[in-house]
Simulated assay, not measured.
Amino acid sequence: MRLSRIIMALTVGLAVVAVPTAAGAAAPQPTPSATTDPPQPPPYTPQLTSLTVNRPTIYLGETVVLTGTGFRGNETVTISVTVTPLAAPARGQAPARRSDGSTVAMAPVAYQASAPLTFTARTNGEGRFTKSYRPSVTGLLTFTASGRDRSASAELQVLDKKQPLPVTGDSIGTPMKLGGGLVGAGAIMLLLTLAWRRRQRLGGVAH
């Protein structure tokens, strides 16, 4: 009897000890976080800055339109012009020389003092601008637009004014040949008329 009580007491004690352990095992465990760092924003892609001209080649006296994009909004952009002569100047005509030592091909007086080599443009809220420019010299013009921290370049080829086609020997000879033929035909007609009148006179005298 005493032995059975001892066995029963041991059984109850083991049961009491096992209950908290089972309860702890059954409790839900926290799920570990998959990421430890906060999400990062996508990388910033800067807008490309560009400067273009609407025509790559013009003749002296014509106008081009410069278009700049990718600059800061509502800023003043400075545009400088560098000129590289396309050919040697005419005999007896020295090239113009700027303060930095570079040369500028001379142009007719009618076009001088009409196109500055430095001017400005104002961008809109999207960093875009357009500017008209009429070159006063021939050559390869390089435009460099510079904002506060951005710049871009474009090139323009300016040729001399269109010249009228020269008059060739063939174009002169044809009218001269035609005129000479008409003069000869007129002389023959005049001789035939004089001969006919003379014949008429002689015939009248014979009757």
Rank of each mutant, 00 (worst) to 15 (best):
G184T: 09
F71T: 01
L14Y: 06
S80T: 14
G24C: 11
P175Y: 10
N54W: 10
T142I: 09
R134F: 02
V77L: 05
T11A: 15
E62W: 03
T174F: 09
M189S: 14
R199L: 09
M189W: 14
E75P: 00
A187N: 08
S80Y: 05
S80W: 02
N54G: 10
L66W: 01
G13V: 15
Y133V: 07
L48P: 04
P30Y: 10
L3C: 06
S136P: 01
T118G: 03
K161H: 04
K161G: 10
L191S: 14
V17C: 06
A27V: 09
V158T: 02
T52V: 14
T138C: 12
V158D: 00
A9F: 09
L159G: 04
Q40T: 15
A206I: 13
D37F: 10
L191E: 13
K162R: 12
V19P: 01
L141V: 02
G70S: 04
T63R: 05
P164T: 07
R201V: 13
G184C: 03
G169K: 14
Y44H: 14
A105K: 01
P28Q: 04
S80C: 04
T82K: 08
T57D: 05
T138H: 04
M1N: 07
Y133R: 02
T76G: 05
F129V: 06
G70A: 05
Y59I: 09
R148N: 14
S151P: 00
V104R: 00
A25Y: 13
V19T: 12
K131W: 04
S171F: 13
L190V: 14
D149A: 15
S136E: 12
R2N: 13
R197L: 15
L51K: 00
P30R: 10
I79V: 13
V183K: 01
A206F: 06
L117A: 09
K131D: 05
L141N: 01
E155H: 06
A107H: 00
T168F: 11
Y59D: 11
A22R: 07
M8I: 14
R134P: 02
V12E: 02
M176G: 02
Q47N: 13
T130L: 01
G139E: 02
T123N: 04
Q157H: 11
P32F: 03
N54E: 12
S171D: 15
G92A: 09
V64R: 01
G92Q: 08
G68L: 05
L194Y: 12
T103M: 10
P32A: 14
V81K: 00
A195N: 10
P38H: 08
T123K: 02
F71D: 01
A113E: 11
P85E: 07
